[in-house]
Amino acid sequence: MLTLYTPGNSLLHRCPAAAKLITLCLAATLIMILTDPIVLASGILVVAVGYGMARIPGRTMWRLSRTALVIVMVVAACQAFFTSVSPAIIVGLRILFLITAANLVTLTTRTADLITVVEAAARPLTRWGVHPDRIGVTVALAIRFIPVLGEQACRVREAQAARGVKAPFTLLVPLVIRTLRLADGVGEALEVRGLGSSARAGASTTEHRSMTR
């Protein structure tokens, strides 16, 4: 879902990262309040115009909206099943808006700029023990590792297909284990790269590691 910066020189690319993020937050809040499907659909239309302005290649757009549509369809189907059709449409449109709008921001903003804004926004929280630089890195990690996790899911699926396993839920356990392993490793890497705990008392600075072994 989270995507990467696509270089460009459009108005949206040049617009300051902070402005884009604030607009995104406001629009996301608004979309959760509004319930008229026509208004919601026009919101999505506005986002689509944004994609045009930013000159995002059609291929990228299709790749992204394909994933978004799958998620929207699954959620909307559940809604329709458990409640009724009209809330399903509203929820579907909201999610579609949120995903496409968030993608538009990440597509037109360098990660480094995004992180700078996130860190600045978190700075007032410093007095309550929040580390703005860690929050910034967390955002970067999310952007960096989503494709990696996607690859892991593919690998697990391949391995299971090779052994003739078909049930989709069997994917979950190995994937969760792999993800926890990855998290262990990344935690260490952060320490090695100068972000993380200094030496704590006890035998290991990464005691949680034994969780997945």
């Binding site: 990467l4 990660t111 970067a140 990690l141 952007i143 960096r144 890497a189 952060l190």
Partner: peptide, 10 residues
């Protein structure tokens, strides 16, 4: 696991 930022230069 060692590469933390999304792009090479970053």
């Amino acid at each position: 696991i060692q590469i933390i930022m999304p792009t090479v230069a970053e």
